[in-house]
Structures are given as structure tokens and as C-alpha cells.
């Protein structure tokens, strides 16, 4: 343990990141530049989220790490191990028990509380990048609230697909001011962005941190005649029978057999523990998720 400073980063770096976090919380949805550090993992593996988590962690915290809703995929496991080793904090797979949850591409199904922090890993923080490659110009557009371009993107969606086909990283307007990329969460999760917990977003390669404070208004952009709709597969979970959770489709065999299961493995496990049984489920709770090799 002693060969690492707590949570890997040195104290000066954590202070710098905390200042960026506080600024982000003070200006909801605004992308705060920060001096992203080299981390012992490649870009794209959550270096932004890891730095934000490292700056937010205290020795008393309990950490949960999920990747696409699952606690047991490579990315989640390696980040959890990283903090076990460098910070020595307690870890958990139960949403309820966690004080800090680092996530890639999902918001947990369970309602989060005021004493929890949700840290997102963000690949591309700039929602306007799709149509405007110049950083100088996108910054100006944010500062002057020139957001017509976001609707051009949605217009293109409808004209090409007959509906707003953007199904993840669906742009939102935060507290009536900044347009923000909520990271590649499914748009099913967008309504949950208005929550009691603190939400922090870290983009390591792009060197940006932004935040949504508790109980902040977060509105998904849309057209009057094509309103925003949070969508999911039209099934119930085949393991726990949940009809209200976001589902992953799992191909079972070469004959087209497939099943739908909760992407939030903890949610599914806890429902089965409480006795809910889906179409293909078994009475006894499984010890691992369906994707486990």
C-alpha cells in the first residue's frame, strides 16, 4: 500500500481536480478544462472517470464500479481492483451500499440518494462536436447559448430515419443553460439525470470535467412534433421479470435464440433475491451475471 499515495494521484493533482469539480458543480453542465494526468491505463478505459473518482474518494468510502450496468466486466473489474490496491477502500457490487459509483454508459436502476456520488466516464464531452469541429467555435457557441446546431443534428436524424434515432449520448440542456453530453448512456436513462445524488463527468483524453448537482433540471432536446421518448426493448427481463429496467439482448445460439436481461446486474440480482422470476429464470439467485464467461 505505502508505495502509492492514496488513490494513486498526488495531493496537488487531486486538489486541482477538486477545484475543477467544484467549478463544474457551480456551473451545471459547463465543461471545465483540467490538467488530465497520465493514468496507468489507456485512454478510452475510463481515465477521466478514474481521476474524478480518485479526487472524490475518502478512506471511508465504499466504491462500486459498473460498465454498461455490470460489475463484472473487464473494465469494471480492473478499475475496482485499481482503487482496492491504491486507495484500500471498501468495494461493493450493491448500489445501495456504495457511496461512490463509477460508471461507464449506464445509470443504475435503483434510485440514488443524496449521500451518493455518480462518476461518469466520458469519451467525447462536446455535444456540438458532431457538426462543428472547431473548439474555438464550440466554446463560443456555449458561451453565447447558440444551440441551434444541436437541433440540426436531431433534424438530420428524423429526416434520415423518420424519428430521432439517437439512442445514446442523447443531448440534454442543464438548468436551462448549458447543452451537455450525458456520456453514452442509453436515452432510457436520461430522465434519471434529475436525481438526488451528485453527478460528476470526467473526460481524460479531452481533459474536461463537468457536473450536475443534485435536483438539477435536465431536459432532453426534442421537437414539438417529435417529442423525446426514453425507449427500451419491449420485453420484461427473462431472469427477474422486471418490466421497468433497461435490457441487454443476449444471443443464445445460432438458431436465433435470444434472451433479454437487465443490463444492471445488481438490480437483477436483488430482484431475484426478492423472489421475482423471469421467463428463463431459476428460483435460486445466481452468483454471477448472465454475461459471465
Amino acid at each position: 500500500m505505502s508505495e502509492y499515495n492514496f488513490a494513486y494521484l498526488d495531493e496537488q493533482t487531486k486538489r486541482m481536480i477538486r477545484r475543477a469539480i467544484l467549478k463544474g458543480l457551480a456551473i451545471p453542465g459547463y465543461q471545465v478544462p483540467f490538467a488530465s494526468r497520465e493514468m496507468p491505463m489507456p485512454y478510452g478505459w475510463g481515465t477521466g472517470g478514474v481521476q474524478v473518482s480518485a479526487a472524490a474518494l475518502t478512506p471511508d468510502d465504499t466504491l462500486k464500479v459498473i460498465d454498461q450496468g455490470a460489475d463484472d466486466t473487464t473494465n469494471a473489474v480492473s478499475i475496482r481492483k485499481f482503487f482496492q490496491r491504491t486507495a484500500g477502500v471498501a468495494t461493493t457490487e450493491e448500489t445501495e451500499q456504495a457511496s461512490i459509483i463509477q460508471t461507464r454508459h449506464r445509470i443504475p436502476e435503483a434510485t440514488l440518494r443524496e449521500d451518493q456520488i455518480l462518476v461518469y466516464q466520458v469519451p467525447i464531452p462536446e455535444p456540438l462536436r458532431f457538426l462543428e469541429p472547431r473548439e474555438t467555435e464550440t466554446r463560443k457557441m456555449h458561451s453565447l447559448e447558440e444551440y441551434g446546431l444541436m437541433h440540426v443534428k436531431l433534424y438530420e436524424d428524423i429526416s434520415q430515419h423518420g424519428q430521432i434515432a439517437t439512442s445514446y449520448a442523447y443531448p440534454v440542456k442543464v438548468e436551462g443553460r448549458y447543452v451537455m453530453d450525458p456520456s453514452p448512456i442509453p436515452k432510457f436513462d436520461n430522465p434519471k439525470l434529475e436525481m438526488a445524488a451528485i453527478q460528476l463527468f470526467g473526460a481524460g483524453r479531452e481533459q474536461r470535467i463537468y457536473a450536475v448537482p443534485p435536483y438539477t433540471q435536465v431536459v432532453s432536446l426534442d421537437f414539438e412534433d417529435y417529442p423525446f421518448e426514453p425507449t427500451k426493448a419491449d420485453h420484461a427481463c427473462d431472469l427477474c421479470a422486471a418490466a421497468d429496467s433497461y435490457l441487454d439482448e443476449v444471443i443464445m445460439d445460432d438458431a436465433g435464440g435470444r434472451m433479454f436481461v437487465c443490463s444492471d446486474t445488481d438490480y437483477c440480482r436483488s430482484r431475484r433475491a426478492a423472489g421475482h422470476v423471469g421467463r428463463l429464470g431459476t428460483e435460486a439467485p445466481l452468483s454471477t451475471g448472465p454475461e459471465a464467461a
Binding site: L131, Y155, I158, S159, E224
Partner: peptide
């Protein structure tokens, strides 16, 4: 961006929200 999106951009920039 499509021809329609190019023409529509200024409308959306001034608050047009009806596709």
C-alpha cells in the same frame, strides 16, 4: 448536413422547434 438541415439551421438557431 443535408440540404434541408442546411436551410433549417437558421430557423432552429432562432428557436424553431417544430420539425
Amino acid at each position: 448536413v443535408s440540404a434541408g438541415g442546411n436551410i433549417g439551421e437558421r430557423l432552429m438557431a432562432v428557436g424553431g422547434r417544430h420539425y
